[in-house]
Design a binder for these strands. Structure first.
Length: 224
DNA sequence: TGCCAGGCCGGGT
DNA sequence: ACCCGGCATGGC
């Protein structure tokens, strides 16, 4: 969603969140995360990228694609040891292989038709289901809902909290659900807005708001 | 070279 | 309800 389409904010918090979005968007432009990718690949990527650089995840995804396994039904049939070896470049490969199979097992047991059936639920119910899978926490669940299911849920990650706390907008000890509620309560529930906004936080965190080297001199949010 | 990356779980307080 | 160690590869 382009910032010009934002409806007028109804609170000072909403206004601040609008302004942050406008500034990030004008600086980085639309990010277009996972636009044409199929839902299966997005779910797999969401699990593989847990605490991991996307570059490494891309290597693992390429290996799965090469093996014709970029597909949840196919993944569900692979022995865990083989899967672990395939995704090795993503790091934490043993635990992530187990998590991928936890997900496909739970998915096809509860929803024989797979993702379309899961995504036919109400968002909160689909979220509950995802959170019940061992290895899927709130960020992974929200990523799957937003980027694979096109549900309007806000994805909070380490970058989000770091950016907001560096600019004294929230305390750095804020919980996941608190941070998510901040966005859900003060922004329109729009999938394309939440898609871009999350990706913009990542862009800022990677390029300016790094963990070390707080060289915020050129930060687009400088002074906010 | 060491630090970091688009978290989450399990055991201990 | 928090806190912390473990999980692992590859890039800068």
């Amino acid at each position: 969603m382009v910032p010009e389409e934002l409806p007028p904010p109804r609170s000072t918090t909403g206004e601040a969140l609008h302004n942050i979005y406008r500034e990030l968007y004008s600086h980085f432009g639309p990010q277009g995360w996972w636009p044409g990718d199929i839902a299966d690949e997005i779910c797999i990527g969401a699990i593989l990228t847990q605490n991991t650089n996307w570059q490494n995840v891309a290597k693992a995804i390429a290996r799965l694609k090469q093996a014709e396994l970029l597909d949840l039904r196919a993944v569900s049939r692979i022995p865990v040891e083989i899967l672990a070896d395939l995704i090795r470049p993503a790091g934490y490969y043993n635990i992530k292989a187990r998590r991928l199979l936890n997900f496909t097992d739970a998915l096809f047991n509860s929803f024989p038709e797979g993702l379309p059936q899961l995504f036919s639920l109400e968002m909160d119910q689909a979220r509950e289901f995802l959170l019940s899978v061992k290895g899927i926490g709130p960020e992974t669940a929200d990523s799957i809902l937003l980027y694979a299911g096109s549900f309007p849920t806000f994805v909070v990650d380490a970058y989000t909290v770091r950016v907001l706390s560096r600019h004294d907008f929230v305390d750095e000890t804020i919980t996941y659900e608190e941070a998510r509620a901040l966005f859900m309560e003060h922004l329109p529930h729009d999938t394309s807005l939440f898609n871009e906004y999350h990706a913009l936080f990542v862009a800022l965190g990677k390029n300016y708001c790094k963990k070390r080297l707080p060289s915020c001199d050129r930060c687009p949010l400088k002074g906010r």
